[in-house]
């Protein structure tokens, strides 16, 4: 089996959410001498790109995406030890979390998944994250982007405060907000650089902000 076919099968396994198939083709990629980074980006990540497209078209939903994620992570487990530092290059870094008082993290986890598949390094702070934690980690990690998620109208109100403080400490850091009650207008009002209405849009916005 040639390189192109292995990568195609790896992408297919990701789309199908077939863990066994993903592991099998990840192993074949290594055996065939395919660069691990290329296998991740042109196999697993390509699969997630297709997943994202299918979600946008209403052809796939969250249960299927979660299975795709499982397959992708299983393949990445195999491929990761073979990654060469020079192939990876410098990945754009995003600090991501659900704001204080809010524990709804399905959306954030989908964004994380899509960002990782798109080559971003994601520092996931989890849910119910205090404002100070976002600020501390953004500075400490020298993040390119900070992503704030909220599902509740009561929790999203802390976003402007976090964004303002991050911008004060390092104006170069970009900020993205997302979640049920947010809108492009609110994102602008809150001083965010971007708004993602769903996971796939969040990735497009993140890329456009930092050229990732």
């Amino acid at each position: 089996m040639g390189k192109e076919e292995i990568l195609k099968k790896l992408a297919e396994a990701t789309v199908l959410g077939d863990v066994e198939m993903a592991v099998s083709y990840a192993k074949r990629a290594i055996e065939a001498g395919i660069d691990a980074y290329e296998a991740i980006m042109n196999g697993c990540a390509e699969g997630m790109r297709i997943v994202s497209e299918k979600y946008e078209k209403g052809e796939m939903y969250v249960p299927e995406i979660l299975c795709s994620a499982e397959a992708m992570y299983a393949a990445m487990e195999i491929l990761r030890p073979y990654l060469k530092a020079e192939s990876i290059g410098e990945r754009k870094k995003i600090v991501l979390g659900v704001v204080r008082g809010d524990i709804h993290d399905i959306g954030k986890n989908l964004v994380k998944l899509m960002l990782e598949a798109a080559g971003f390094q994601v520092i996931d702070l989890g849910k119910d994250v205090p404002n100070e934690k976002f600020i501390e980690m953004a500075i400490k990690e020298n993040a390119d982007i900070v992503g704030l998620s909220a599902l509740m109208t009561t929790s999203m109100v802390v976003m402007p405060e976090v964004i303002k403080e991050i911008k004060k400490r390092n104006p170069k850091i970009k900020t993205i907000v997302g979640g049920g009650p947010l809108s492009p207008e609110l994102a602008k009002l809150y001083g965010a650089d971007g708004y993602g209405k769903d996971a796939s849009e969040a990735v497009k916005v993140a890329k456009s902000l930092v050229g990732g």
Partner: peptide, 9 residues
């Protein structure tokens, strides 16, 4: 707690 608006698990 601040930010919360409904029971949480």
């Amino acid at each position: 707690e601040p930010g919360q608006s409904a029971p949480y698990i």
